[in-house]
């Protein structure tokens, strides 16, 4: 183990995979200028050269399409969006080309693209077009794997697994954890796609989350620990969902809360609740809950943004409500 910032742990994953496999390259805006705007590609240009660390014009459609065409012809691109919100500019390439190629061509085409959505999530006063946490509609588009790490070790391990995946992976990053210094395993370390992790074992309420919202969930669980014993689970992979871990926890607790930084409408939370209601209804002792950011673009003003974004207190309130009768 060594202490590293989240962002550096992911850079280490990129470097190790680029070292291991010559077909891996990074492409995006400013990735070749001073280590990228987030320091997310620090040292890669010097080590691997401009052919494998490709800085582009602000042309999301073209560089995403380039990545798709490169993947179809044997390379393994990591295509970076400086902010998650910018992927909307490239939605034809993402939704019609990358997502559909494998099926459209009868299973013959490989599309090993990692779509890295940098700096997702609100709370930093950047306004509506630099703050969205984007995950559910990529889960809704058939063809993608979707992951969202909550910590530095998972950032490294999931990035390595994403690069090795022959399916396209949307890698959703939370800006709020970028510069947190945490323990990261050295050298070869992968986190399997499709496996959730129990962050805090508990007996009475299942609290599922992913990305930066896991930290809010963990804090909320700590705040109520004298009253109710909450199990906090980090989904890590949003598609395919680790229903085995989810069901096992709900079978034990009978109470389910899903907390995330994107709105509840058509969300991962809504999907988890759907599956639990459909398949573990008899185990439920209370209606399952999704606690999420408000269904609105993110406003700039401090008070308005804080009201809009999922807070620790929002989660605490839901834990208390769902625990009526057991506390």
């Amino acid at each position: 183990m060594k202490k590293m910032m989240y962002i550096s742990a992911v850079t280490e994953a990129l470097a190790e995979e680029m070292e291991r496999d010559e077909s891996v390259f990074v492409i995006g805006e400013d990735v070749d200028i001073d280590g990228g705007v987030w320091n997310e590609t620090a040292g890669l240009l010097e080590r691997f050269g401009a052919k494998r660390v490709v800085g582009t014009p602000i042309s999301e459609g073209a560089f995403t399409g380039l990545a798709a065409g490169a993947a179809l012809t044997g390379l393994r691109p990591v295509v970076e969006f400086m902010y998650g919100d910018f992927i909307h500019v490239a939605m034809d390439q993402v939704a019609n080309q990358i997502a559909k190629a494998r099926l459209m061509f009868g299973g013959q085409a490989k599309m090993p693209v990692v779509i890295r959505l940098c700096a997702c999530g609100a709370g930093t006063r950047e306004g509506a077009q630099h703050s969205q946490f984007l995950e559910s509609w990529f889960a809704h588009l058939p063809g993608f794997v979707v992951v969202a790490p909550s910590n530095a070790a998972d950032g490294k391990g999931l990035m390595k697994s994403a690069i090795r995946s022959d399916l396209p992976v949307v890698f959703v990053e939370s800006r709020q954890i970028y510069y947190d210094i945490q323990d990261v395993p050295e050298g070869e370390y992968t986190v399997p796609i499709g496996k959730a992790e129990i962050l805090r074992p508990g007996e009475q309420v299942t609290l599922l989350s992913f990305g930066y919202a896991c930290e809010k969930a963990r804090q909320a669980a700590e705040m109520v620990k004298d009253k109710v014993d909450v199990e906090v689970i980090d989904l890590r992979t949003l598609k395919p969902l680790d229903t085995e871990t989810i069901f096992k926890s709900v079978e034990k607790t009978g109470r389910l809360i899903v907390a995330h930084d994107s709105p509840a409408m058509c969300s991962i939370g809504a999907e988890v609740v759907r599956r639990v209601v459909a398949e573990r209804f008899d185990y439920l002792d209370a209606p399952p809950v999704v606690v999420a950011s408000k269904d609105v673009p993110i406003p700039f003003n401090d008070e308005l943004e804080d009201y809009t974004v999922l807070s620790v207190q929002d989660i605490v309130d839901e834990i208390m409500k769902i625990s009526v009768g057991i506390i």
């Binding site: 179809l72 390379l75 190629a101």
Partner: peptide
């Protein structure tokens, strides 16, 4: 689609294949 003969796809989206071909050129 026919990889062996270098045909990497028709495209139902007008303009959809243009940037993909750039990717193949980049690969080359």
């Amino acid at each position: 689609y026919n990889y062996e003969k270098g045909f990497l796809g028709g495209n139902g989206i007008v303009g959809g294949g243009i940037s993909l071909a750039l990717g193949a050129a980049f690969s080359a």
